[in-house]
Design a protein around this nucleic acid. Structure first.
Length: 271
DNA sequence: AGCACA
């Protein structure tokens, strides 16, 4: 756990739940995972609690959403600004484009065939880092006061000094390993897409140390900024890609040693 | 522990 160097810690006690591994999601099949990760809240939001979210996000969120953004890319892997909505704009973390019926809408390329991208009603994606977290706390421990207000709660947190302190080596790129060899770029992207600031994922196939013909899949995930990356890192640390497969262990995430194409500071080219 | 692409 000393992964991120000295004393870095998250505002919430996310790790606790995350590492305990006990409160894992209900039984799921591999197929389910491909629909999206059983994201627990970045701040340890218990899955059970997610049902209690006050705002009827579920109703409005999924139905009329249809083939919403996030699925437009030809390969369905793009991140793009669409997802920024999660924590930024409106209602909350439920804007996931993964509603029911997502499998068909003309979107581009999400034809996962029988995969049915049915959207995990009980899996509202979470995703944001402290600064943009939206009321996902719905009633669980952590912080006092009613959360659920965009920004407001977050700012209160900030004032309390409860802000995320990024480790010195934090970067916008995460290095992930522990992915199964047969993991596709699409699958990997599915895991990270729900997080604010997700941009893209790059898979790399390397030869394992043992020349038993094993290949290990490494993965580099690009985020808009180090904080976004840190949030995903923390939330997915130890994520069991496939619990039923004894060959695949928990994911292991760290900040990339040599940050991505753009690095942490992509200043002028964007202006 | 293991870190590629531009």
């Amino acid at each position: 756990m000393g992964d991120y160097g000295g004393g870095w810690r998250y505002a919430g006690a996310a790790a606790a739940d995350s590492r305990r591994g006990g409160s894992t999601p209900t039984k799921r099949t591999r197929r389910d995972y491909e629909d999206g990760p059983p994201v627990r809240g970045a701040y340890g939001t218990p899955r059970a609690g997610e049902r209690d979210m006050g705002y009827g996000a579920r109703d409005r969120g999924y139905d009329d959403r249809g083939p919403r953004g996030g699925w437009r890319d030809a390969d369905g892997l793009g991140g793009g600004g669409d997802l920024m909505q999660y924590g930024g704009g409106g209602m909350g973390g439920n804007d996931l484009g993964m509603g029911p019926g997502l499998g068909m809408p003309g979107g581009g390329g999400v034809s996962l065939g029988p995969l049915t991208l049915v959207g995990l009603p009980d899996d509202p994606p979470i995703l944001g880092h402290g600064g943009r977290m939206v009321g996902l706390d719905g009633g669980m421990g952590g912080r006092p006061g009613g959360l659920g207000l965009n920004g407001v709660a977050a700012e209160a947190d900030a004032l309390r000094g409860n802000v995320d302190v990024l480790p010195p080596d934090a970067s916008s790129t995460l290095f992930v390993d522990g992915l199964p060899q047969d993991c596709t770029r699409r699958e990997a992207a599915h895991i990270f897409r729900p997080f604010i600031g997700f941009k893209e994922v790059r898979l790399v196939h390397k030869d394992a140390k043992r020349v038993d013909g094993g290949k290990v899949v490494l993965c580099f995930v690009e985020f808009a900024d180090p904080r976004c990356a840190a949030t995903a890192l923390e939330a997915l640390q130890g994520y069991k890609f496939d619990e039923t497969d004894h060959d695949s262990y928990a994911l292991r995430l760290t900040f990339a040693r040599h940050p991505g194409p753009r690095g942490p500071a992509p200043p002028r080219s964007l202006r």
